[in-house]
């Protein structure tokens, strides 16, 4: 019985699906974000690594972002997508100050760090594409 009722209305299905999808699309649009205050992150790099808390930095599209890097070694940091470079060193923090115009998940690659090997882990790879952290810019 239910089957027959469903079949009668099945022509409505694509229309209904489209309506639901559009509604979902609308509801998932956020309201106006307060983009005046810059989002500030201070990242400390020790031995070429950072603590887990900072592995993914999240901002919204349109935010002004201030990334401050402090490192115990002289390293090169390159943020893909935005194509920005920072070169923090001992006693010499580096700043990245930009507007998060592009939405996406952008890796920040690190070069030139000598990592301490934790006693238990083997090094499986050359790791020349090591990402230090990721910046996630959510679309608005």
């Amino acid at each position: 019985m239910i089957g027959v009722t469903v079949l009668k209305h099945i022509r409505m299905l694509p229309v209904l699906a489209l309506l639901i999808a559009t509604a979902g699309f609308e509801f998932s649009m956020p309201g106006d974000a307060d983009a005046q205050e810059p989002k500030v992150f201070s990242v400390t790099v020790m031995n070429g690594a950072i603590d887990k808390k900072h592995e993914t930095l999240k901002v919204e599209q349109g935010d002004t972002v201030l990334l401050r890097f402090v490192s115990d070694q002289a390293i090169d940091l390159h943020m893909h997508g935005y194509d920005l470079t920072a070169r923090p060193g001992p006693g010499k923090p580096a700043l990245l100050h930009f507007e998060a115009k592009l939405a996406g998940r952008f890796p920040v690659e690190i070069h030139g760090a000598k990592k301490s090997k934790s006693s238990g882990a083997l090094n499986l790879s050359g790791g020349h594409h090591d990402a230090l952290l990721y910046l996630e810019v959510a679309p608005n």
């Binding site: 979902g24 998932s28 997508g81 939405a103 996406g104 998940r105 890796p107 810019v137």
Partner: peptide
Amino acid sequence: SAHAFGVRYDLPLPMW
């Protein structure tokens, strides 16, 4: 994708 060539910037699909 990081395998063959080039980087991907896709955001993870949100829970919704």
